[in-house]
Nucleic acid binder design. Structure first.
Length: 375
DNA sequence: CCCCCCCC
């Protein structure tokens, strides 16, 4: 109780000791166990205008840098990630959980340990609650995070917080960026694929394509987060929280990555997206393009054997716009489209890959990442 | 960490 006295004395007698003690008890009650007596006393003292000294000052999230060390701030819970268990060397089971919090200046990820991670498990930490937070800053894989250690504070507060998740625009996403919040409209959703990781365990991966008013980007979802694709529909507007951007080692495109530290959720606001169609005359080999035009040629479906012994099919069509005409190879199921198409039908070919093909002419390959729309 | 750019 000495600590509590110390905190009371900072108030310089603005209220009686009895009232202070009562308010502290009420505060503890209010917080239904989310707050210890000392923190409650500090909150009550704060309510009565106790001035914080120097390094005790509350910070804003935008001011937190990798070198901030110990930080103290008030923020709103924006997302809660499931608690995980791990084994410590001493044989005990540790628990860890992450939440993303925001104030009016930005958002940041918190790491909660053991008892505080359990609050996630029991559902006591909910999106929308406001917390007084004290912890230390650490650099994580996808950006900085605040660890709430034993000496940290993680305590619900009545204080109002204007929370802002500041999201980047797609055109501003660069390789290596972490801590990314992106809003976009869903343009495409892949199936979930399984694969073997280097360590031999099974992994899951899925992709979505999202767009905003500045562009579009492929999003790769890993393992558990692939399940999120089942809840999403084309044209949903979504928010990706705490993703990171990495160049894939497949075709060196920067993709947004959604791992176990990230999530995707639907948002009310509609994100605008307009497909950027390239004039056929401007197509060069080795890029992904979307074109819009009229069918100006139709071929037959052909089956062929691939090197690995599997059978695939292909058909070819031509599409023309005001600037030119191009051959398009429709692979796999796309090949069947020739049966539905007629000359002069308006089509959109989205995300087809250009290459130098038959007779060294540029053609587009419509594979499983390509969408074809009959307008 | 995962994948297509294959046909004639």
């Amino acid at each position: 109780m000495d600590e509590i006295n110390e905190i009371y004395e900072k108030l310089g007698g603005v209220i009686s000791k009895e009232d202070f003690t009562r308010e502290v008890e009420e505060k503890v009650e209010q917080m239904s166990g989310l707050c210890d007596v000392r923190t409650a006393a500090m909150l009550v003292a704060h309510d009565h205008g106790a001035s914080d000294t120097g390094d005790n000052q509350l910070q804003k999230i935008s001011g937190i840098t990798p070198n901030s060390g110990n930080v103290k701030f008030i923020a709103k819970i924006m997302s809660v990630f499931p608690a995980r268990e791990f084994n410590r060397n001493d044989g005990t089971t540790g628990r860890v959980a992450n939440v993303v919090v925001a104030d009016e200046t930005g958002s940041i990820r918190l790491t909660l340990w053991d008892d505080r991670a359990d609050l996630v498990k029991t559902g006591e930490i909910q999106v929308g609650q406001n917390f007084q937070i004290a912890g230390y800053v650490k650099e994580g894989y996808s950006g900085i995070e605040v660890n709430i250690g034993n000496n940290g504070v993680f305590c619900e507060t009545d204080e109002k917080v204007e929370a802002r998740i500041d999201s980047k625009k797609i055109e501003d996403i660069k390789n290596g960026m972490g801590d990314l919040n992106i809003r976009g409209r869903i343009l495409d959703i892949s199936d979930i694929r399984t694969f073997n990781k280097k360590d031999g365990s099974a992994g899951k991966v899925a992709n979505i394509m999202i767009g905003d008013e500045t562009g579009k980007i492929r999003v790769t979802l890993w393992d558990e987060t692939t399940d999120l694709t089942k809840e999403l529909k084309i044209d949903d507007s979504v928010e990706i929280i705490n993703g990171y951007a990495r160049e894939n080692n497949f075709n060196q495109q920067v993709e947004m990555q959604v791992g176990n530290r990230s999530t995707i959720r639907k948002i009310e606001d509609e994100v605008e997206f307009k497909e950027d169609f390239t004039s056929i005359a401007d197509i060069v080999p080795g890029e992904s393009y979307s074109i819009s035009g009229l069918v100006s040629g139709l071929g037959e479906i052909r089956e062929f054997d691939r090197d690995d012994g599997t059978v695939n099919m292909v058909s070819n069509i031509y599409v023309s716009d005001d600037t030119g005409r191009i051959r398009i190879a429709l692979w796999g199921d796309h090949a069947l489209l020739v049966d539905q198409l007629d000359i002069d039908m308006p089509v959109e070919i989205i995300d087809a890959f250009s290459k130098s093909g038959f007779n060294d002419e540029i053609e587009l390959s419509a594979g499983n990442r390509t969408r074809i729309m009959i307008r």
